[in-house]
């Protein structure tokens, strides 16, 4: 047998195994039961199923919370990034300590600290109740990650840009705002979009802090439909939630891929 013939045989075998597995699965599986448990006809109706609450409460709140956490994290991250690049050493130390601290913790620990730890210790709840507290926790953690992304972006702007602006007499602040940051933001759009996708998924952690019915994000709504509502006792609502998450995240990850391709092609 030549080398080519052997390679061909291996390929044929691989396909045969795959085909056999599919056939066995199709024969063994009870499709009616599977469908009722994962895609229950009671849950997927437009009028009386789960979609209404999942979309108008869950998905809307997930997007809202993500936007708040992203905006807050971006503002905090920008301050931290500028502190990290500051000529004043104590600012650099503080920013570095903050970033290393919060990047080293699970987001959930920080969110629970804000939502439960602070109220227990000081009888004081951050604004917005447990959801507000959880979002503050998310912002604190996201800020640390975004600070590093922004710092890398700022440092990727060539030094000659700063020199050109300063040689024209522009002050350091104006140089940063008018010359460096606009270029830095363009560089960090893809990684920041990734950051946004991560935040969408992290808002699911808010479920563990609890929320009023109208404040629930997508995962919380889906969790409640597991035990109550038309498709209670089946996994249907989780599958539906998964689809809704993908509807938001897939276009964004595609967008990141497209932006990265375009950036690689762009001549600097």
């Amino acid at each position: 047998m030549t080398r080519r013939e052997r390679a061909l045989l291996v390929q044929v075998l691989l396909y045969a195994v795959l085909a056999a597995a599919v056939v066995v699965l199709a024969l063994v599986a009870d499709w009616a039961v599977i469908k009722e448990n994962f895609w229950s006809s009671d849950g997927i109706g437009w009028a009386d199923g789960n979609w209404g609450d999942l979309i108008t409460t869950g998905m809307v709140n997930t997007i809202k919370y993500t936007a708040i956490a992203f905006a807050g994290g971006l503002a905090l991250g920008l301050v931290l990034a500028l502190m990290r690049l500051s000529p004043v050493a104590p600012y650099r130390w503080m920013a570095t300590a903050y970033i290393e601290f919060f990047r080293g913790l699970p987001a959930l620990v920080v969110m629970m600290f804000m939502g439960f730890g602070l109220p227990i210790a000081f009888q004081w709840t951050p604004p917005g109740g447990t959801v507000g507290a959880g979002l503050i926790g998310l912002i604190l953690v996201a800020g640390a990650y975004m600070a590093e992304t922004l710092r890398a972006g700022i440092q990727a702007v060539p030094k000659g840009q700063t020199e050109a602006a300063r040689s024209l007499g522009m002050r350091p602040g104006a140089t940063t705002v008018k010359v460096v940051l606009p270029q830095a933001f363009r560089i960090v759009i893809p990684p920041l979009t990734n950051e946004f996708v991560l935040l969408i998924k992290d808002t699911a952690l808010l479920f563990l802090l609890g929320a009023a019915a109208s404040e629930r994000e997508l995962t919380s709504v889906a969790r409640d439909f597991l035990t109550s509502g038309p498709s209670a006792g089946t996994a249907t609502s989780l599958i539906q939630a998964a689809l809704l998450y993908l509807i938001i995240t897939l276009p964004l990850t595609q967008l990141v891929a497209w932006l990265e391709r375009r950036q690689r092609k762009a001549v600097r």
């Binding site: 060539p158 000659g160 840009q161 050109a164 300063r166 007499g169 522009m170 010359v179 606009p182 270029q183």
Partner: peptide, 19 residues
């Protein structure tokens, strides 16, 4: 900065603002 604004400078790599 005031003194620099009175001294024009031209660089080897041009350093125009690309944005």
């Amino acid at each position: 900065d005031e003194v620099r604004s009175r001294i024009g400078m031209v660089f080897q790599q041009f350093n125009l603002f690309p944005h």
